[in-house]
Simulated assay, not measured.
Amino acid sequence: MTKIGTTGARAGMVPLALLAVLAAGCGTQRAGGDAGAGGPSRSAVASPSTPKDFPCPGESPTASPQPSTATPSPTAPPTDHYAENHGFMIPFELHGKRRCQGLAAVARVREALEPQRRRGRFSPESVRKALVGLGYSGGQVQAYPGDGGVGFLIQVDDYPVCVEGSLAGNPDLDGATTKADAFGGYPDHEGCDQPSGGH
């Protein structure tokens, strides 16, 4: 009986000793002490890095930077929580090879829709047919009536790389325009369609 009790006491002391060792290492730096002498300063906080972009095929090396869809990092506490609560609706930017893939998809889409833009005759059906003609499956393409024209959304691949835009206007009056932009989906959401709710 004595042996069992001793073994139990020793087993209980191992976590207690480990806790004592861990606690001894905490709080050894005093306020006003030299933080840089023995290690990194407290101000050296790791921040996520943005992948470096490079010129894509057909793009000049001095291309103008794309507008950022990312929210700026807060330097002061936000005055309201609108941006925080609606962050799930801000699409991811594409970088590196995925950015080049997105730019190539945008160029193909613009070229496919150019005949309809010049004629000024387009409908959701004709836009969808032109985009499916590029090799995208019917499930990857959405075309719908939009502000004075037709809006479209394509899921180029499963990353996802998405292309969203519109074909609108009248070439005889104000000129028809084709708008198309590539992005990388949304936070906490699969696919390319903008989520209606988040957390």
Rank of each mutant, 00 (worst) to 15 (best):
D53I: 02
P57E: 00
V21F: 09
A24E: 08
P15L: 07
L19S: 14
P51D: 02
S43F: 05
S49Q: 10
L19G: 11
P65S: 13
A46Q: 11
A46T: 09
A31Y: 12
A20W: 05
V45E: 03
A46H: 04
L19Y: 01
V14G: 06
R10A: 15
P61S: 12
G39R: 13
S64D: 12
C26S: 15
L19E: 08
L18R: 13
E59P: 02
D53G: 02
A17I: 14
V45Q: 11
G38F: 11
P65H: 06
G25M: 12
C26A: 15
P55M: 01
G38K: 06
A20L: 15
A63M: 03
G33A: 12
S41R: 06
G25S: 13
A37D: 00
P61Y: 09
S60L: 09
L16H: 02
P51Q: 03
V45L: 03
P61L: 05
R10E: 15
P51F: 15
S41N: 09
R10V: 14
P55S: 05
A24G: 15
G33C: 01
L16T: 12
D34F: 10
S60R: 11
G25I: 07
P40H: 12
C26V: 15
S41G: 10
G58E: 08
A35T: 07
A23G: 11
T28A: 14
A63C: 01
A20R: 08
G12P: 04
P55F: 05
G12H: 08
T62W: 09
G39T: 00
C56W: 00
V14E: 09
A31P: 04
M13Y: 05
G36Q: 12
S41E: 08
T62L: 12
V14F: 15
S41F: 15
G25L: 07
L19W: 07
R10W: 15
G33Y: 00
A23K: 08
R30I: 08
A31R: 03
T62M: 12
R42T: 13
R42A: 14
C26D: 10
G36C: 09
A24M: 04
G33P: 03
G58S: 01
P51R: 02
P57G: 00
V21A: 06
A31H: 02
D53N: 13
D34P: 06
G27Y: 02
A23S: 10
P55T: 02
M13D: 14
A31G: 11
F54T: 13
L22A: 06
G12Y: 11
K52D: 09
S47Q: 03
K52L: 09
G36S: 14
S49W: 01
Q66R: 12
P48D: 10
A11R: 05
A63P: 00
L16S: 06
S64I: 14
